[in-house]
Structure formats: structure tokens, C-alpha cells
Design a binder for these strands. Structure first.
Lengths: 210, 210, 210, 210
DNA sequence: AATGAATGAGTTTTCATTCAT
DNA sequence: AATGAATGAAAACTCATTCAT
């Protein structure tokens, strides 16, 4: 009864199909949430039959779980890179830009995450309360250190991080609204956002002179 | 076939039950989206039997529609108040605070909206492309006017508005994450956020001296 | 718990309402059958609320039963009048005309009966196998008597009666089809049918000369 | 979402099951009408589970529609064969016999049709007002032609056709009543009816001599 | 008499999952 | 690997009937 997805040795085809399914599932779960998504939708998106899809994954739940498992890791990557040794403002604006690029390049992941949180994070609470909180605490300490050293203006590091998350992920999660409101200017939305946000956080953090 | 909810003259009970149902539905739809929500969940949340709930509303769809209809109006209220005649920085930071208060006092409405947008706004696209965009355009023009007059620093008004939406709504939509990350400091999250965001946007907008 | 309909002494209003309900129910049952009919439909047709309707009749079943009880009696009236002492051809053609008038004046009763029979007569089998069959046997004997006496052409009396039922009730049961097929001539359909059927059965029954 | 029944290429099983379902549905719809029929009844009659039945047809409605679609065509076949070039009385009595055979061999189709008409033909009005009326008009003209040429007695062709429909379909639609009334003679009912009806219409149509 | 409110028992689907091939 | 077929469980309603007023 060993299912392909759980076998240690996957053939190339198995790997390809699994990824095809995960990609399709990401698309649908991101929009409709777990309960709002049907296997039929995923199968249609992947161009597979429903039983065939279930040949690769044991259940709808298994697909979702796999997606979430992969998610947090990549999701936190940009924050991990924030380097205590670098220039504080540079580090933070670089982080903003990396997050914005993720919103641009992986909007579905962003929406999947948003969907989970909206539901009260029933399936990723452990990761939120564990690795994510730990990482934030660590980086918040670095930021506090910079502020204490006068290298950036005093700032609440947690709310700073929240505002970076919020402003960047907004371009993924609320993309449809952003696009409609911007109208013709929508094509440049990520460039404009990059400039705007760089300015926003630079002004916030630049230590007051004198 | 006139259902209670659609009748012009509602009895006291009808009004109470309708509101009870809408409130329960808001709770559930906000978390699970339209498809992910079951009438059973709403009925349980409202403490009613399923058929009794359907005595007041024709269908699951009708409840959802009613909620969305009521939503946008209250949702845009804070932005409507932005006054061209007031002090620019005050106007904008006041707007931020009002939005933040809404995130605190009406988090379910915020999440319902977020959920709709995540799904591609299938049911509120008209309102996004119509009234919402019109209002944003109008207020963006005001902000541009202020910048042109040198009363605030030059800024992209659209991305400014996006960032206000994003940062304030974050405290409703991602509340669970915010609370977990903040740990003990979670009680003061709205006060801290108010201070942080006021500072953030004040620094952004304050016209450079000289 | 004495219901109005079952009480011995009915007020005038009770009688009126009961008849109103029966008439409305006849309309609906005739078209959709017992299971296909909802109390809501009957109540709407009668202009009453559903609970009010059920104040007068204990149940949907009770209304239907009442209708069927009244039905057979009036339904067989024309056949009862067939008089062994009269002129044979006159008696039969008169019967045809009376049946045709009933199809014209009481089409709903005809359709209700048809509906019951189509379903296999679950509720009126007793009456079919009892009073109806008895009456038909009796009248068939009369017709056979006439034929034996050479007063009408030899004919199978049962199939004669079936054909009279069929041809006359057709103008009630299949009225919509008759009307559409006849187009403009539909207004005169009962007059034309009377002439046609009189001719049909007269030719059938007129004893061959010589 | 392509259902088996709508696919161009059907497997053997699909064809068999579809026909099984249609046959079961015909049985039940014919007796109880659309609303009065439950999918459970059809499934039980077909010996399938309800979801399995719905695997082959999208909905109760789809089954019904399919049945009606197939119905009119075969239903009108006998009338189509009425040949202007043949002997008038032969043509018409042959038509009567063919219709009677259909009543004997396809009683469920007859009852389904009757049920639809009783309800006011909501789903087949188009076919009644279109193809059926056209065909009747065409054949009525032929009959009128025969009468004008003195080859049959003068007769209203529309009411002639109605009476043929009525008398023959009666043996399907009112079969239970016919059987009960005839008692022991019921086995020969179709033979007796054939003789009776042939005589009936022959006498009607035979041109008067001299 | 009349009606708004409520509900248990259906009825029509939908859907995740299993089975057979 | 892949798919047609099948199903139990659930979900969205529907409806006859009851209850309280």
C-alpha cells in the first residue's frame, strides 16, 4: 500500500506529477481555503483524474499538509538573512525588497499563508508559536540592539516587522484590488511599491541627526 | 414566498434573529470563506436549528450577499472622512487611527473582506471597480494636491493608501499571528500599533525642512 | 382538538373556507398529483396561510381524501342516468354529451381522476373495483340487451363505454394540447367535439337496415 | 466535469446503466410526475445507489429531460406513416392499430406524456406547438382532401385525430381501470379493443353509398 | 381564526475516498 | 499508473406539521 508520495525512492515521473499536483493545489487552496477547495478543482487544474491524483497523495489533507510544511521554510527565508553585522537601514530595506519580491514571485504561497491565518492558523499554530516566533524574537533583538546603539531611530521591532509583512504581502494577497485600483499603472506596481516602501522605511529608521 | 428577512415590516423577533444570524455568519464566513462555510456552522454559532435559520434567509448565498452588501459601506467610511481642508499630516494619521480602530472593533468584517479578495473578489468586483476605486482616486488627488503644495513630502498616494490599509488591517486579519508573536505584550498591541504607525506615517509625510 | 372540518356543526365561514381550500387543492392536485403538490401551493392558490389552511383540514392527506371521496359520486352521475327504457342511440349520445359537458365544466375533477389512475389508483381502487365496476356491469348489460334486441348494432359494451370515457375526458385531460393544436378554432372545441362525437357514436350504433 | 451520459463515446457499461436508469425513471415519472418522483425511487427501481445513479446523470432534471427528448419522436411515428397515397379507410384504421400497439407495448411512455400534458405541458410545450402541431396540420389536410374527394365521409380531421389518440392511449393511461372493469376478459383487452376501434372508425369513415 | 416561528424528516445533490481493472 | 465505477457521509435545501400567541 506504499503510496508514491511517501516512498523514499521516487521515479522522475512521480516527482514531476507530485509537483504538478502541489502546484495545482496551491493555486486552489490559496484562493478557497482548505474546506472551500475540492479535489475535483485540484485535479482539473492539474489535468489529472481524481483517482489518479489520489494515487500520488493519500488524501486532500495530505496535499494540504505537504504544502504547509514546505511553506514556512521558504516563507521565513528573507528574514533569516537579516544580518546583525550589516548596515542597519540597508539590512531592513533589503529585507523589505526581498519580501516584496516574494509577494511578486510567489503570490500563491502568500495567499495560502493568509488563508491559514484568517482561519485561526489551526494547522500551523505550532510553527507560528515555535520557529516563527523564535526567529522574530531573535531578529527583534538585533533591531533593538541597533536602536540602542543609535544606529537607527528608536522603533518597536515587532510592529516594524509586522508592518513590513503587511505592506509587502499586501501586493500578493490583495493583488486583485491593487490592480483594479491602479488601473493602467498596475504593471509597474511592484517597482512603484519598492520605491515607496524603501522610502517609507528609510525615513522611519534613519537616525535623527544631531 | 416572502421571507421574513426581505419583508418591509419586520417584527422585533425577525429583526433580532436576522441580526443574530448575520453576526454568526460573519464570524464563520470571515474564517472559512463562502464555500468553506456550512449552514450548520452558522446555525450552531447562532444557536438556531438549520431550518429555522433558513426561515429567515432564503439560502446560504442570501446571507453572504447581505453581509457583503453591508460591508463596503462601513468599510470605506474612514477614508470618506479624509478632509482636503484639514491639516494634511493630521488628516492622514487620523485616518490611520480610525482604520486601526476598525481593525480592532470589527475584525470579522476585515477578515470577510480579505477572504473575498483572496478569492479574486468574485462577488464584490463591481464595488471594488466602482465606488471603491472612485473614492480612492478622489482622495489620491487630494493627497497629490497636498504634496504639490509642499504641505507633505512627495509621495505616491496610491501606495500610501495601500500601505495604510495593509498595516492596519493586518491587526485584524493576522491577529492570531500578531498575538502569538507578541506573547505577553499582546494586550497592548493596538495601542503600540497606534504609536508605531503614527510615527511611521508622520515621518514619511512630514515635509522636509528648508 | 375538534377540527372545523370534522365538526358536525360548521359555521358559514367554516364551510366557505373549506370549500375555498378544496377548490384550490383540486386545482393543484389535478395538475401535480398528490406527491407533486405542496401545501404551500394550495395555500397560495387559496390565499391562506399554511397554518390557517391546516386549521381547517388535519393534513394534506385529509384534503386529498376529501376530494377523492366527493369525486367518484359526481363522476359517475352521467352514466347512472343511462336509461334502459329510453331510445338506445339517444340514450348513448346523450350520455356522451353529458360527459363532454362535464369535461368542459369540471376539467379539474377529470384531471384529478386521471392523475389517480395514472398512479395505479392507490387510493380509489376500492371504488373502481366496487361501485364503478358494478355500475359499468349494469349498464353494459343494458347495452347488450339493446344489441340483442336489434335496437343497436352489435357492439362490445365495455369498450364502447371506454371509448366514450376516453373521447370525452380527453377534452379535459389533454385540454392544453387540444387548444394548441386547434389554434384559432379552439374556442369552438366543445361544440365541434359534440358534433363529431355524436356522429361517431351514432354511426357506430345505428342498426344496419334491412 | 463531463458526465458519462453526455460523453460522445460511451463505454458498454455506461450505455447499459444509462438505459437501465432511463427505464427505471420512465416507470416512476410516468406514475408520479416529475415532482412526485424521488431519485430514491428511481435508484431503487434501477437497483443502484443514489450517488451511483447521479454518476450517470447530472440531476433528476437531466433524466427527465432525456426521457422527454426521446419521447415525442417515437410518439409521433405512427402518425407520420399515414400515407396520402394509400386507401383512406385502411390508412386510418392502420394508424389506429399502430397507436393501439404502442399503448400496449409502451404504456409508460404514454403515461409520461399524459402526465406532462396534465401539468400543462411546461416542458414540452415547444414540441407540442411546433413539430406536433405541424404534423397534425399536415395529416389533417390529407384527411380533408380525402373527404373532399368523397373517398371518406365528411369528418372534422382534428377531432378525428383527437378521438384516435384518446381511445388508443386510454388503454395505456387508464390501464388499471380497464383491467379491473373487464375482470376476466382483461387478457384480451387489446384484441377486443382492436376489433372495436376498427369497427368504430370504419363505420365513421365509410363513404355513404349512393 | 389566524399567523409568525420552529422543527424533524426528508430530498437533491456534492464530495472525499475506495474499488476493480 | 491510470481510470471508470461506486459509495457513505455530508451539505443545502424543502416540506408537512406543530406550537405559541
Amino acid at each position: 500500500m506504499a503510496r508514491a508520495a511517501s516512498a523514499k525512492t521516487q521515479t522522475r515521473i512521480q516527482k514531476e506529477k507530485s509537483e504538478l499536483i502541489l502546484s495545482a493545489a496551491l493555486e486552489v487552496f490559496a484562493a478557497y481555503g482548505f474546506r472551500g477547495t475540492t479535489i475535483d478543482q485540484i485535479a482539473a487544474e492539474a489535468g489529472l483524474s481524481k483517482p489518479n491524483l489520489l494515487y500520488y497523495f493519500d488524501s486532500k489533507d495530505a496535499i494540504h499538509e505537504q504544502l504547509l510544511e514546505d511553506l514556512l521554510d521558504t516563507w521565513l527565508d528573507p528574514l533569516r538573512s537579516l544580518d546583525a553585522e550589516g548596515d542597519p537601514v540597508d539590512e531592513i530595506t533589503s529585507y523589505v525588497i526581498r519580501k516584496l519580491e516574494m509577494a511578486r514571485d510567489f503570490p500563491r504561497e502568500s495567499r495560502l499563508f493568509a488563508n491559514e491565518i484568517l482561519q485561526g492558523a489551526p494547522r500551523i499554530m505550532d510553527q507560528i508559536a515555535g520557529p516563527l516566533k523564535d526567529l522574530v524574537d531573535e531578529k527583534a533583538a538585533i533591531i533593538t540592539g541597533w536602536a540602542d546603539a543609535g544606529r537607527i531611530a528608536p522603533v518597536d521591532p515587532y510592529h516594524l516587522i509586522f508592518s513590513i509583512w503587511a505592506t509587502t504581502q499586501h501586493y500578493a494577497d490583495f493583488d486583485i484590488q491593487v490592480a483594479v485600483v491602479l488601473g493602467e499603472r498596475a504593471d509597474q506596481r511592484f517597482d512603484d511599491a519598492a520605491a515607496y516602501l524603501t522610502n517609507l522605511f528609510t525615513k522611519l529608521l534613519r537616525p535623527s541627526e544631531g
